[in-house]
Design a protein around this nucleic acid. Structure first.
Lengths: 251, 251
DNA sequence: CCAACTTGTCTATTCGAATAGACAAGTACG
DNA sequence: CGTACTTGTCTATTCGAATAGACAAGTTGG
């Protein structure tokens, strides 16, 4: 070990923004490089010790930065081997039978759905039209964060008629899945009726939940699911991290 | 004092970016609000204690944020009175007799010029043309940060012929002023020959030196000064913080 | 199997961010 | 003058960022 520069100068200064932690600066620096497309998918990064030396920081600090990049879904680390760049996007098929947990499981990942919050509210004109209700009817609103292998994929706002699904929030929080929640209400065969896709930028709240930098692109997916009888069941407005997902529409 | 929320929740969460210090988040939040133009110039901000309560943080943390906004030139604090928004831009007249220290002094502020670095280098085609030298001739290059009342106003790169001003770096570092540096070489009556103004965005280095957020607009001012005899003296490429300066061209 | 290399985890220490409280110093107003 | 209010400064404490070092656990290649 040479370890000069015990405290000061090096490549650090060119990154160090006042009031921003070192590991965050390093993580952001790597994110830029990766998102620019400088690395191919699967490229092996240098060993942590080498990166630490190049930045003039401790190895633990680099580990913290890499952990951050892991939660952002930009790298994948394997013990004893190394850290690899991950630029492939998860394929997310959209069709009549669109179930997050099943899609993720089919892709060989671990699905997770966490309820961020829920409340009752009167239906807006748009929500009422989707669900076939009168404006102002009581509806349940759920905010759900979905992740695959602990990497956030999407945040979704879902509305259901309160008349039948008043406790949907509590049920979801326990069962952690929309499929199982509806099953709890006796709904088994439900289907996607329509899906509308647009794009935009993540606001501060969504960016935080999705562990994205602000102003990264997102895919906005609005949809309506119906019961087997064709009755409106739930409508959703989901925001997908466009850096991590590609939507495939079945036809 | 009510001081609930000893550690958690409040308006904090909506701001708190992971890896970014609290005071920085608050400062950036205020900067956004100010630059959007929500406050008129001179508007009095609420007392520190009140701001602290609104964000759910300690008063010291607010003070740190306000200190940051002060160095960015966005607020001005007066003891015993309060903190005031500062959106007025300093008027910077450009004419034949353009001397930073004189302009700033005339506006009632304290001028400061700090040398960031200096070196000799061969003249590029552009610099050579400006100074009337052959390409590759040895020139002295100075990087100067200028501030008024401790608020950074501009960073400037200045080139002089090395033949006569070889030690310009050391001299400037001692005298802290271009006017005095030239005076040291016996140059008293020099004048602006031409000025070219354009605009762009601050890169990471300039943003750091000017204490700006990255990607804030800057005014790029290229100019040539000549001696009393009309001989090319020095050429400069200055980058001014557009949020703090308005250039006035005399005609 | 063994040696070299890389990531994971542990302990200890230093330094600054953030909190908490108290008081000084300045201004404004009746 | 004196009270109320606001900013400035000080001390003390807690918690996490960053450093430092050592070793365990895993992979690779001879």
């Amino acid at each position: 070990m040479l370890t000069r520069t015990p405290r000061g100068s090096s490549n650090r200064d060119s990154l160090l923004a006042r009031g921003v932690m070192l590991w965050r600066c390093i993580a952001d620096d790597y994110e830029q490089t990766i998102l620019i497309g400088k690395y191919d998918n699967g490229t092996k990064l240098p060993p942590e010790s080498e990166i630490a030396a190049r930045y003039g920081v401790n190895r633990h600090t680099v580990r913290r930065a890499m952990a951050e990049l892991g939660t952002r879904g930009l790298v994948r680390t394997e013990r004893g081997i190394g850290t690899f760049v991950r630029t492939d996007k998860m394929d997310y098929p959209i069709g009549q039978r669109t179930r997050f947990s099943e899609i993720v499981a089919a892709a060989g990942h671990e699905a997770e759905g966490r309820l961020q919050g829920h409340r009752h509210e009167p239906a807006s004109a748009e929500i009422a039209a989707h669900l076939g209700l009168k404006v102002g009817t009581d509806v349940v609103r759920l905010e759900i964060l979905r992740a695959a292998d602990r990497v956030p994929i999407s945040v979704a706002t879902t509305w259901l008629p309160a008349a039948r699904y008043a406790d949907a929030g509590k049920v979801f929080r326990r069962l952690q899945s929309m499929t199982r929640t509806l099953d709890h209400y006796g709904i088994t065969g439900y289907a996607r009726k329509w899906t509308r896709i647009s794009a935009g930028f993540a606001d501060a709240v969504d960016a935080g939940r999705l562990r994205l930098s602000v102003q990264r692109p997102i895919l906005v997916v609005e949809s309506l699911d119906v019961t087997g009888d064709g009755e409106p069941l739930l409508t959703t407005r989901g925001r997908f991290a466009a850096d991590r997902v590609a939507l495939t529409v079945e036809s």
